[in-house]
Nucleic acid binder design. Structure first.
Lengths: 355, 355
DNA sequence: GCACCTTATGTTAGCGCTACCATGCCGACA
DNA sequence: TGTCGGCATGGTAGCGCTAACATAAGGTGC
């Protein structure tokens, strides 16, 4: 941001301002502003002249001044709970990048409050901090408390990665159902018929969607889902490990395990190894999300990739649109449901069952 | 930022400004500004009163106004290579937080270029983007290329987590030597005598420091280091796995493995499990860094914790100081070497050797 | 011709903050 | 007693930009 003058005055005459351009063309700064911002009511001729000057002088609008003067310049609150640090890292990267481009400010706030009261206090603090909108990565994206307070305060929000679209709030997500369906089909195509499923955290709708995708894929392949082969998990390594242990201790253990996220897949593999089973020879395992946690697992795990960074960028965009919409129309625009493409990442944790 | 008024005027009186605080305390805005910016020439009493009001009103300085007015408003470049996403996540959190407090802008740039030329191009791009200083987390913190270009362009930089202080560049780090020494001593205190060591990436000085700490601790305990029990690794899961396999295949395998980072520790545990060994009953394993990757490993791994977020905050601070120093004195201040405290995190991967 | 739009531009007044200078106070030193 | 230098504070101006309100020049309709 503009190097300081070393002699006197406030700033070195180093940065071209809107006034320089105006003088150069012989119009008022206001006209230049209008041209730069693509407003109407400017003669084509004038527009061209200004544009030319802009290029000639290499003028670039000062973002700080712009946002101070009341345009643009959102302050975006990012309320994060305790997703894996890995997820958060990728998410932040995307969000930060896009905020930079849109010259928005990112304000972080951690929210791992247990009770509703503390949760509301944190949200309030974020808003007091001047956030114009809030982005909610999982698992906060579905906390009713948070949403209620946000709606009450009339603050736009974007939920990231809920299992299903929300009625009152924009969201970016992948199609968890479809992804789970594809992943299951992938297992089936390898000849697996006795496939177990470790469910995700019951509070997140994504869990249910993934289960639904699994069930439908099994049904469509005319495979029976054995009740005891569907166990509860909580998206943690430990719950995956315990769930898999339960599954593998059965008289007729599954030949493949579908874990609802990568952490649990890692747990399942660990459980298999503890029983002396080889993955994928004796047991196939798939995960979900493609988090970097998989770097600590051998063999490399087949999973569903969520484009987290891209989703963060989209979240920022959606928030922008929402805020601008409100500014123009005076009321909240209808919630957008943006579904992005996932992809199936085939790695080494799936093989044909031994029979 | 700042909600727009729906009635008239430019802006709603909704965001607390420096004037609100001033009025609340009964001083001039100037005094508030001084307090907020930690300048001198403010009575302690006044300072406290202002601080209290700031907290009470939940005042946060408007970054745009600040940088417009010509103050501060650094643009900090964060050049990241490919550390683990988990590390980056924690790091970003700290850096972002502190940048917010100091109202600096964080500009990210990825740099995983293989060759020197591409690397230089990326650095150049970052500088063209207007970065006033650069933060270099590992592994870039020690890339000679990057440093050379930065020095040449006279851009201040802060290296994070190099093994040793750099002659020409400020840095934040832990004492890798001491930490490794302590960790080794910890293993020895459990009765281990045949301890193996998996080295880190040869390009990073931290690797050598950790090895040195290990060696000295062994020597001070009058334990012999067997040459074949020290193997090369590259800070990756796979290299840890392969290294451990080599170690465990020996006629007289070690009772404990010191892996130079967590990824390799995870690999070592995986290798042990594949051989049917129980950790920690048959083999103790320790890691280094306390990255979230350990969440995907069972049992919980004893390791050295680096306060990554805190180190990021310090890095931002150091960069500030450097830039301000240059502004005042006109030349670069002597490089600071800031060593922060690590801690030994005892978990479940260490036990007494079976004998 | 006069009201009345539409288009194209200029003027004014800040946004919130801080650099810079001015002020008044104190004690110290001659 | 006067004056000087350090302290603690206030006043003023202005960073670069853009809402909001003028203003002015050309239509159009009756």
């Amino acid at each position: 941001m503009a190097r300081r003058a070393q002699t006197n005055g406030r700033r070195a005459r180093e940065v071209v301002t809107i006034n320089d351009v105006a003088r150069h063309v012989g119009v008022s700064p206001m006209t230049v502003s209008r041209v730069v911002n693509g407003e109407k009511y400017v003669r084509e001729e004038t527009r061209k002249a200004v544009m030319a000057a802009v290029r000639a002088l290499n003028y670039a609008p000062n973002q700080a001044a712009r946002s101070l003067a009341g345009a643009e310049g959102l302050r975006i609150g990012l309320l994060y709970g305790n997703p894996s640090a890995a997820y958060l890292g990728e998410f932040l990267l995307g969000a930060l990048d896009q905020s930079g481009r849109k010259s928005a400010q990112l304000v972080l706030e951690k929210c791992d409050a247990a009770d509703a009261k503390a949760e509301r206090a944190i949200v309030r603090r974020l808003l007091a901090g001047g956030a114009d909108g809030v982005i909610l990565p999982p698992p906060l994206c579905e906390h009713a408390n948070v949403h209620a307070l946000l709606t009450e305060k009339n603050v736009p929000a974007v939920a990231v990665s809920p299992g299903l679209p929300l009625a009152h709030c924009a969201c970016v997500r992948i199609n968890d159902y479809k992804a789970a369906y594809e992943l299951t089909t992938h297992l089936i195509s390898y000849g697996h018929t006795r496939i177990a499923f470790i469910k995700g955290h019951p509070d997140q709708t994504a869990s249910a969607e993934r289960l639904r995708g699994f069930e439908d894929a099994m049904r469509d392949a005319n495979l029976e889902i054995q009740k005891p082969l569907v166990v509860q998990g909580f998206f943690t390594f430990r719950s995956g490990l315990e769930g898999a242990e339960k599954l593998l201790a059965r008289p007729k253990p599954p030949t493949a395990i579908f874990a609802s996220n990568d952490d649990m897949a890692a747990g399942a593999i660990s459980a298999a190894h503890r029983r002396g089973l080889d993955v994928p020879r004796d047991l196939s395992v798939v995960g979900f999300d493609d988090t970097p946690i998989l770097a600590a697992v051998w063999p490399a795990v087949t999973t569903i990739r969520q484009p987290v960074a891209q989703m963060a960028e989209i979240a920022v965009d959606l928030l922008f649109r929402d805020v601008q919409g409100r500014k123009k129309t005076g009321h909240a625009p209808p919630p957008v449901d943006r579904v992005v493409e996932h992809s199936l990442v085939k790695r080494d944790s799936v093989a044909r069952p031994k029979r």
